[in-house]
Design a protein around this nucleic acid. Structure first.
Lengths: 210, 210
DNA sequence: ATAAATTTCTATAAAGCTATAGAATTTATC
DNA sequence: GATAAATTCTATAGCTTTATAGAAATTTAT
């Protein structure tokens, strides 16, 4: 099956693949800093050291670039989540790993993830299908972790796992955005405090009590 | 003191003031929907039923429109926070009022507030001074409320009030954005669940326990 | 009714942006 | 080293957008 796509002639070379990643990261950096509409294709091209017109060797359009950046960042992130959830661990450890993964991503200036969070809604709905799929997968994993916690007896049975999952994501995104902007903030302290806030709100019997 | 500004000739008429508000709200709606860079001055003008060029009777520039929309939305919001905090109430009631105020704002499609949250960073720093001031004021009020809670014995003394204040804002913004997008979600249930998540994470002795 | 002030409109200059085509250059292959 | 393939460049067509100027229309005041 020497499958050569109709749309993209060769573009299977080693170099192409590498530079495509560079293109994605340049686009991610620029979109993260200026927003999708605020960024120009020239900004992105400059960021990767080529001319504006050459960028179209890597992206069919600016919009396609946004789409691919979002998928690139989010896919990676969901994959990591899957590894964490696959392990058999007590609830608290898992939650800590999830928060850590989320916030470390941001501190490492994972621009693509930031772009996914802030800019994906500027994509037309039809082009958000894959992202929505990934997003649900992530939330389902988080909800499953919460249900595991309930089964383990660590988490109160009455909680609304959907609501809590969403809230966890919200807190992490909010702190994540702050961490990116302010280098002074201590990453690991933030992680611990997030965990403490969430845990003491979800743990049966309120462990860790002074 | 018949103070006539140099920059704005007359523009003190009744009608002007009214239409200026309409202009702010049109701009807010458009910026909220399309983002600052994604929106055009023609979008805003159309929204208020005038022609593109006429918009400049109300705003000096598109950027000034963004600035004024942000201040308009946020100022209103901080003012309401001040009223809530002025009352002498038990901690839990106050927190509930704060969350309610925040989320109700969103559900009422308070576009200006959404624009403040999502788009203010596209303003040059020099034009963000007033907003930063309002933001700190809001956070200080929230932190003071938490300290009150500690004094009342309702809140654990070891919490980091700054961190918790920030997290509350983060959760509310996150749910607020969701509430705007999805009319199906029950507003008051969301308020209660937010409060429950935060309270059980901050209350001494873990009240409300099943 | 007339004059003055306010508000809106039309038209346009100036600039910026996306996307494409085809030439030029670099890299890989035989 | 010659040929083919891959990559980048230049130049530009075709739009869109912001902001301004001055005319026109509307409203308010005399």
């Amino acid at each position: 099956m020497t499958n050569v796509t109709k749309i993209e002639p060769a573009k299977v070379s080693n170099k192409y693949a590498q530079k495509k990643v560079a293109a994605l990261e340049a686009a991610a950096a620029v979109f993260a800093a200026k927003g999708f509409h605020g960024a120009t294709t020239d900004d992105i091209a400059s960021e990767m050291g080529i001319k504006q017109g050459s960028l179209y060797y890597y992206f069919k359009s600016k919009e396609q670039a946004l789409q691919q950046v979002c998928e690139y960042g989010f896919d990676h992130y969901v994959a990591r989540m899957e590894k964490i959830c696959a392990k058999s661990q007590p609830f608290e450890a898992k939650l800590l790993a999830i928060i850590t993964s989320h916030l470390v991503s941001y501190r490492q200036k994972n621009n693509a993830l930031k772009v996914h969070n802030d800019q994906r809604l500027y994509l037309p709905k039809e082009q958000r299908g894959a992202l929505k799929e990934l997003g649900s997968r992530y939330r389902r994993l988080l909800e499953a972790t919460l249900r595991e916690g309930i089964e383990q007896g660590a988490v109160r049975a009455e909680i609304d796992t959907h609501f809590i999952a969403y809230s966890i994501i919200g807190i992490c995104n909010s702190w994540g955005a702050t961490l990116v902007r302010d280098d002074e903030i201590d990453l690991f302290e933030t992680i611990e405090q997030c965990a403490e806030l969430i845990l003491r709100g979800t743990l049966t019997g309120n462990k860790n009590h002074e």
